[in-house]
Amino acid sequence: MPNWLGDMIMATPILNDLRKNFPKAKITAFCKKPLSDLIKNDKNIDEVFSFEKPLLKTRHYKKKILKKLKEKKYDLGILLTNSFSSAYLFFKGKVKNILGYDTNFRKFFLDYRIKFYNRKNTHLVDTYKRLLLPLKINLSDSKPKIYLDEKEMEKRALLFKKENKIVGICPFSNYGKSKCWPLERFEKVAEKLLDDKNISVIFLGEKKDKKNLKIFEKNRVFNLIGKTDIQNLAYIISICDVVLTNDSGPMHLAASLDIPLVALFGSTDEIVTGPYLKNGIIKKKTACSPCFKRKCFKDFLCMKKIEIDEVLNEVKKKIYVQKIY
């Protein structure tokens, strides 16, 4: 499975399509930690093989993968990553038929080579699905989905006043600042939402994103930035009535859980990496967008053009219209 949260979620339709077409097959998903925690309840797979992938001293995790591959003697291996090393590991692990993208000088390890499809105007979910064409599996309408334990969802709901409407706010993104709407604008939207006494707000993010915002001092505001692991993040998002977010992993997580979204796009392309088969996107046309750069060296118009009241109104619409995108 892919190594980034958003990419991994966008690859989950592959699991559904494989199970649908090969109902008796034994399917193992190789996935790095902690992303593997999100697919352990996936009904389409028989086993999740999870591994740590350190930045240095990678020999140990590669040995672990090789051992698993050789023990299981897989008939087919589908590579959703583009790296040379992943193809080499499947080859050394004696996977009988290896299917993957013909990139990064790895074609000699592949039995079925797929040219990396021109992603312009093509969603990444569909790019992944094209990997199954050699198996005579046509592009399906299956969408990304994460399966959670309902009892665990109920436990999280009890932590909050669920009689209130809950707005999850994810104001960060791993790729860079150019994907992020100004933080003070997220804060302003939250302040205005709190004028409605029936609304609570949860701020979500990683440890590296920790901030001290004045709004955290207000009632009905929960600051969970840096306080959830990836599995708990999924459960918290699952009890939200709407999620306000940049283009990010949590955005795809919310979409995979069918949570209404207001997703803000600037430097990236919503056609390629937006919520799959859904709207809820706010994006302003500018001459330089999408640029796909981590940092804006111009005037950041693509994000600054998105107004606070426009976002506020979209969030309010989603709050009171359940499951409508």
Rank of each mutant, 00 (worst) to 15 (best):
N3S: 10
M8S: 09
I9L: 13
I9Q: 12
M10K: 12
M10H: 13
I14M: 15
L15P: 10
N16E: 12
F22Q: 14
A25C: 09
A25K: 11
P34Y: 10
L35S: 03
D37M: 15
K40D: 13
N41I: 13
D42F: 05
V48Y: 04
V48C: 06
V48T: 12
S50G: 01
E52C: 01
P54T: 13
L56P: 02
R59A: 14
I65N: 10
I65S: 06
K68H: 05
E71D: 15
E71Q: 15
I78G: 02
T81G: 02
T81D: 04
S83A: 12
A87R: 07
L89G: 01
F90E: 00
F91L: 06
V95I: 00
L99H: 03
L99V: 10
Y101D: 11
T103V: 15
F108D: 04
F108K: 13
F109Q: 10
D111A: 09
F116N: 08
N118T: 04
R119Y: 06
K120A: 01
H123L: 05
V125E: 01
D126L: 08
L131H: 02
L132K: 10
I137A: 11
S140R: 08
K145F: 02
E154D: 10
K155R: 12
K155A: 04
K155N: 02
K155E: 10
R156M: 07
L158V: 02
F160G: 00
F160V: 01
K161V: 04
K162W: 00
N164P: 03
K165C: 00
I166E: 01
V167D: 05
G168S: 02
C170Y: 04
F172Q: 08
S173P: 00
N174Q: 02
N174T: 07
N174S: 09
K177W: 00
K179R: 09
K179D: 00
C180S: 09
C180R: 13
K188A: 06
K188S: 08
K188W: 01
L193H: 09
K197Q: 00
N198G: 14
I202P: 02
F203T: 07
L204P: 02
D209Y: 06
D209I: 05
K214Y: 04
L224M: 13
I236G: 02
C240Y: 03
D241Q: 03
D247A: 04
D247Y: 05
S248F: 08
M251L: 05
H252V: 00
L253R: 04
A254V: 05
A255Y: 04
S267K: 11
S267Q: 09
T268G: 14
D269H: 14
V272T: 06
T273C: 13
T273G: 09
L277E: 14
N279F: 13
G280A: 12
G280K: 10
I281M: 11
I282G: 13
A287Q: 15
S289R: 14
P290T: 08
C291A: 13
R294E: 11
C296P: 07
F300G: 10
F300P: 07
L301D: 15
K304N: 15
K304A: 12
K305S: 03
E307Y: 12
D309P: 06
L312Y: 15
E314P: 08
V321I: 14
K323T: 14
K323P: 13
K323C: 11
